[in-house]
């Protein structure tokens, strides 16, 4: 028992349980006014038991109860065909494909920029400050415009959303890789010099392996942020598919349960993506001979 409490599982479970309890309490208190109002209009008293029951099962609650959200999640993932427009899996896939495309482009771009920055002093001095400044532009806020503009020149569908993800995800990769590619110690770089290694040999045989742990750490950040980019990219243009579109239609029609289930789907997706990158990291690092 003591060993269990020392680990992480029990504390996390306890905190999650408390959160669920608070959530149920919140559901009751936030939804109760509506039910009391309804009862008052019908000119009757409402008993506590009935009130409790009704607040947990409203059609458009202010705050849906956890079980409502999970019923909706189950309903829209398992009980619907994956190709159906009403299936959350379908919407998640739309978002996921944009996320992955953007993430791939962003990572590649970030690595290229980092290699350039490490090898060229002028690039280091001139590009790096602007890479940092580029992130103070609230690109998420600009996303709608970029999508509208790209639509106007005939680019539509996956790519515009992916470009938002790219813009967000290249930044952590650049910063992490510049740090990683510079992480070999001077003594190792000197050794490469004594071998008369060329710059590209130094890059592939020394800098790149040294930067791998940094790459994976930044990729974890990048993949999470690129999902955010894809979701926000779906908000403005009245996108018809994707988790962002589910959020937007949910908010237009007051379908709170739909909003919450889309949110949980997005959360699950983010968790899975980060986990996949983490798994890849463990496998690659083990192949590279890292001792746990």
């Amino acid at each position: 028992m003591r060993a269990l409490a020392q680990g992480r599982t029990v504390p996390v479970m306890a905190v999650v349980a408390v959160i669920v309890l608070i959530w149920y309490a919140g559901t009751f208190f936030l939804n109760a006014p509506f039910e009391r109002d309804q009862a008052a209009r019908a000119g009757r008293e409402i008993a506590f038991g009935e009130l409790l029951e009704r607040t947990m099962a409203q059609e458009r609650p202010v705050l849906p109860a956890p079980h409502q959200v999970f019923v909706e999640l189950w309903d829209t993932t398992v009980n619907k065909a994956v190709t159906s427009r009403r299936s959350l899996v379908y919407h998640a896939w739309v978002t996921l494909s944009a996320t992955l495309l953007g993430f791939a482009i962003g990572t590649a771009l970030g690595i290229l920029l980092a290699i350039g920055i490490v090898h060229n002093r002028a690039m280091d001095k001139s590009v790096m400050p602007w890479v940092i400044a580029s992130q103070t532009v609230p690109i998420l806020a600009v996303a709608p415009m970029i999508i509208v503009v790209l639509n106007a020149i005939g680019l539509s569908g996956l790519l515009p959303k992916a470009l938002i993800s790219t813009y967000l995800s290249f930044f952590p990769v650049v910063v992490g890789m510049v740090k990683g590619l510079r992480s070999p110690e001077a003594i190792h770089l000197d050794l490469m010099r004594t071998y008369n290694a060329s710059r590209s040999q130094t890059l592939w045989k020394l800098r790149w392996p040294a930067a791998t742990p940094f790459l994976f750490t930044s990729m974890k950040v990048a993949v999470a942020i690129s999902l955010v980019g894809a979701i926000v990219g779906e908000l403005p243009t009245g996108a018809v598919a994707g988790l962002g579109a589910r959020l937007l239609t949910g908010s237009y029609y007051g379908q709170t349960i739909q909003i919450w289930s889309a949110l949980f789907m997005a959360a699950a997706l983010a968790a899975c993506l980060v986990m996949v990158v983490g798994l890849a990291q463990t496998m690659v690092m083990r192949r590279m001979g890292e001792r746990p």
């Binding site: 202010v62 709170t256 909003i259 949110l263 968790a271």
Partner: peptide
């Protein structure tokens, strides 16, 4: 921190 928290925006606007 890794979740798309921005998605709570419609809920907050509702509340």
């Amino acid at each position: 921190s890794a979740l798309p928290i921005i998605g709570i925006a419609p809920i907050m606007v509702m509340w």
